[in-house]
Design a protein around this nucleic acid. Structure first.
Lengths: 136, 136
DNA sequence: GTCGTTGCAAACGGTTTGCACCGTC
DNA sequence: GACGGTGCAAACCGTTTGCAACGAC
């Protein structure tokens, strides 16, 4: 998983990581781009993509590639589940114990060499749920 | 969820549904396009997309929008989990009991109005796992 | 005959990539 | 100074959409 040559610590990389770790939301690449531009106005979107991708490969950040067209990123790399609002697209952490044994059970049932699992609960976030009840 | 005016049963729609139900794999839209073209050589990719989207809204088929860049479709609409191979991208059914209580627990913890949940186990499928062990 | 559906092609949106220059090690 | 990283812009690829013709009801 870790590459042979270590990543150079450029200021772009540093700011991206700091910014991502400073929020509890799960920004998309272009949301990260907007955040990082406050410190580095000349950074390019390509650099943001490259670094988020690279750091997720290194296990420094988590790529949330689950539902929806845009990928999202998370500074918290420990296994945890997510909630996604079907109306506004927002993603929250689900503070729940990871289900025990799924990976082992899946490996036995399928013959896969299991590496991780993810669980996503979908519905309406409190804000969107409220709106919806009113209009219906 | 169901629309007011019923869907017209065009031959395109019929063939797409038949083909999807006849396989146990989880085809992408363009794989469906190739399959359907055997019966309807003049069908367009746009029609395939439109119908898969429409039928998934109607609950006739299942859209698997979880991980990976392409969406996949499933003729089996009952709640079930999936396995995804990180090497070849193939998706298999995970024949496992859905985890009880996740949705209720998530609703309580988060205040979301929960509608569904999905779980995806990722790793290497038996074929890719074998190749990988040899080369490493 | 109406109006939902189709085929076509062009547009879209998120992401990736080639390239010449730049800055970390 | 080497070589990995950057900014920029163009390319990519899956998907969506506008439109005129078509066909299910």
């Amino acid at each position: 998983m870790l590459s042979d040559t270590p990543m150079r610590m450029t200021k772009q990389r540093k700011v991206i990581l700091e910014r991502l770790r400073s929020v509890t939301s799960h920004p998309t690449a272009d949301e990260m781009y907007e955040m990082v531009r406050q410190d580095l106005p000349k950074i390019s979107l390509g650099t943001v993509y490259r670094n988020l991708e690279l750091m997720s490969e290194e296990g420094v950040v988590l790529k949330i590639d689950v539902g929806g067209s845009k990928k999202r990123f998370d500074g918290n790399t420990s296994t945890h589940y997510h909630l996604r609002c079907l109306n506004c697209g927002r993603v929250d952490d689900l503070h729940m114990e990871p289900v025990k044994g799924v990976e082992a059970e899946a490996a036995i049932l399928s013959g896969y060499q299991v590496m991780t699992h993810s669980l996503e609960v979908r519905g309406l976030c409190p804000a969107c749920g409220k709106k919806n009840t009113k209009s219906n």
